[in-house]
Design a protein around this nucleic acid. Structure first.
Lengths: 64, 64
DNA sequence: ACATTATGTCAATTATCTTTTACATATTGG
DNA sequence: CCAATATGTAAAAGATAATTGACATAATGT
């Protein structure tokens, strides 16, 4: 399933997928794949994304 | 660096590394490596561990 | 209308997470 | 003292995260 919270948080910072990818040191396709879902990124990448977007892991990646 | 919060949370549930590994469907070495640190597990594994230990991502894996 | 940026997606390759097998030490209970 | 459990660690192989390059379609602004 899609990660719409990530997409929204990125939009709130007015960052493109490319800009976020550059900021956290991965490729644009990786960010796109995470937002698209059916993907399993590493915890360090998730943490880097959270810090760039001023969020926490629970806010962007926790699922009940 | 070591993940002592994970080690403590596991101890609080009285689970061995093997028991936690079985519960989340990975090998004992993987749990050991995560606790040992210098390791980068996937977010899905982190979530599975958190749910097994009744914690959240922020509680076990967030780092300021 | 045009150029530019942003996004979606795919195939092939590289990097790395995870397993398997194995051996070692420490600890606990009988 | 002995058997069983728990933990730490390592090398090789398997599974998958992530990169690279490419092509396509929307969206945006001039």
């Amino acid at each position: 399933m899609k990660n719409l919270r990530l997409k929204a948080a990125r939009a709130a910072k007015d960052l493109s997928q490319q800009a976020l990818a550059d900021a956290v040191g991965v490729s644009r396709q990786t960010i796109n794949a995470i937002e698209k879902g059916d993907y399993n990124p590493t915890i360090r990448l998730c943490i880097a994304i959270c810090k760039e977007l001023d969020c926490t892991l629970d806010q962007l990646f926790w699922e009940e």
